[in-house]
Design a binder for these strands. Structure first.
Lengths: 198, 198, 198, 198
DNA sequence: TATGAATGAGCATTCATTCAT
DNA sequence: AATGAATGAATGCTCATTCAT
């Protein structure tokens, strides 16, 4: 018997949200479609109206998340070309997004290994974009004399990990407020790059 | 037919090593005991002479790894009480260990969610020790006037994540040599804390 | 490929019957779900649409059987309040049921020890009902002067065991017909209780 | 390392006793040799110095028990040829033995289905002896005019089951003392056979 | 779209048994 | 006699996936 009032528009977001919750709680491999179906209020078989396999569900979700973050970042930094300003915006945007959407962030950063080969590579190149954007900002800043770095690749990846790992420890109910984290990160990362001040 | 010359002393290290390799490659959930047995050169049933469940295997392995790292760190920093010096040693030791034993590091940092409740809590408190040690160094350095930080908890966790995530991207075959990473991390983290120089 | 026309209404009775047959032949512990599935004409995994564990299957089956016997007995004796008559009906009903449904009887009497603690206790209290009903008949008969017994509890349990053990030795193909057994048991049990005639 | 002081004379009785206890508690199939070894204070492998397979252990134990009971019965009744007296002795001996050695009795009556074909048949013919002895007593008693029965085979098997099932409900700690059970059974079985008194 | 019975491959775990020491 | 690591087959159970309705 079909539940009255069901529709793609209502059902998919519910599946997506519940799926992300479950993956956060147990990891993708441990999440099973029975649980997902139950949480979503439908039967297992019905899930297949929304994706063609469990793996594809993960791929779809991660792509959506990463694209969203990428768009958010790109939109945020496009207003200025000043490296110092761009860095500040990049950091702020990343911190806020990783706090406010920590579950999605967590999934997109920690479940890549469960993607099938093809999807994995595709997502990897999406991920690479964040590194490129940051690397570009740093490079421009060094060229302009605003930043000084010992080793750019290491510095970039270190900063990126600092940012993405926020989703692992931030808790909305915790003592650390988002604005405090933003401020601290801005200072920390500023210090990391402004070696000329030493 | 029993393999001649087999013995506990030889078999467990083989299982441990192969297990860590497999977990790195596929994640703990996807690793199955058939594969582990085959890689270890024994039969599935024999694995149970070395642990009582797949979960307990993970717990045992992670405990061993974390204890080893903790001992390494504590031994390294006990030679001096100078905060600047202690920080340098802490950073160097962490970087080197995470590079040289990146697989073990990766497992101990990324598979906690697969631990059963009890083991999870125990390992969490072990993990907390690294934070406490670093927090202590930073605190002492602030007190002595060597370091300046905007928000200590955020700073500590940011540094820690920067260090532990090395195991996710470092590759022995890559272009970045361990010494370069050590040097860069020392500078980056030094900058993060020496806010007074700004 | 799913067998066309399968459905809960047809499948469960098949599983139940085949399961009882297998338990009779080999005992519950030795019965395995692969055999049960094969006999039932379905795959192992499908069994779990009908019970959640092997133990629960046993519990379900035994409960069904005991409830049925209990209902049969209670319905049969409710027509009269005369102790002598009630006893005769009780004995006849038990004998006939244990002959005609000897496999179900056998399972419900001999596999209790395989039930998990909770189920065991529940079934035990169901079983106790048969003893109570018989004990009540005997008590009323003694009060009315129809029966005389040396020791009521021992007498009741002895009679009950005489009746339930029929399922262990009765064979439909054997020489002893049901009616003969009924008659003999009526006389035997009548003699056991009519001690006043001595 | 061999435990000092171990010897066949001490070890086998311990294994036998612990085995019977375990079988009573869980049934033969559920009893496993690891538990048996642990309870017996030796290693699993060592059990095979005392029997060649788990099945053979059961066979050995049941044979010992049944032979003992048979010898006890035969010795007890050989003193007289009077049917009434022989019956009384048979009943008394069976009751006492089933109370005092209820665990052994339970095993020998309830685990026959776990015996391999050959052993099963052998034990069955041993078991048959009890029926024959009782049948013989009843026959002689009918011939002499002491007993009257409606149907001898049914009567014999009913009496036998009444007796052997004592091991299922008798508890040394219970309210029913052995002597009370003996007396009651003597009267009950006397009544069953002395139909002429009606 | 939704249902739910069915599939079939896969998994962790158990356990009787063997055997070099 | 005793040990304990090793074997290998078997078992209960899970789960992604299919598909007739």
């Amino acid at each position: 018997m079909r539940t009255v009032g069901s529709s793609r528009e209502k059902t998919w977001p519910r599946i997506r949200t519940k799926g992300i919750d479950l993956i956060c709680k147990t990891g993708f491999e441990r999440m099973n479609l029975r649980k997902l179906a139950k949480e979503s209020g439908i039967q297992v078989g019905s899930l297949y109206n929304y994706f063609s396999s469990k793996d594809e569900f993960l791929y779809k979700v991660i792509c959506e998340i990463m694209s969203d973050l990428l768009a958010t970042i790109e939109e945020a930094i496009e207003g200025t070309s000043n490296p110092v300003e761009r860095l500040r915006i990049y950091v702020r945007t990343m911190v806020v997004w990783h706090c406010e959407r920590r579950k999605e962030a967590y999934v997109s950063h920690n479940e890549l290994k469960s993607l099938p080969k093809a999807g994995y590579n595709e997502v990897r190149s999406l991920r690479k974009r964040f590194e490129i954007i940051l690397g570009d900002i740093v490079e421009k800043g060094c060229a302009s004399g605003d930043f000084t770095v010992a080793c750019r690749p290491v510095t970039v990846v270190a900063i990126l990990n600092m940012l993405t790992s926020i989703s692992e420890w931030y808790r909305p109910s915790g003592a650390l407020r988002v604005e405090l984290i933003v401020d601290t990160y801005e200072k920390l990362i500023g210090n990391m790059l402004l070696l000329k001040h030493q």
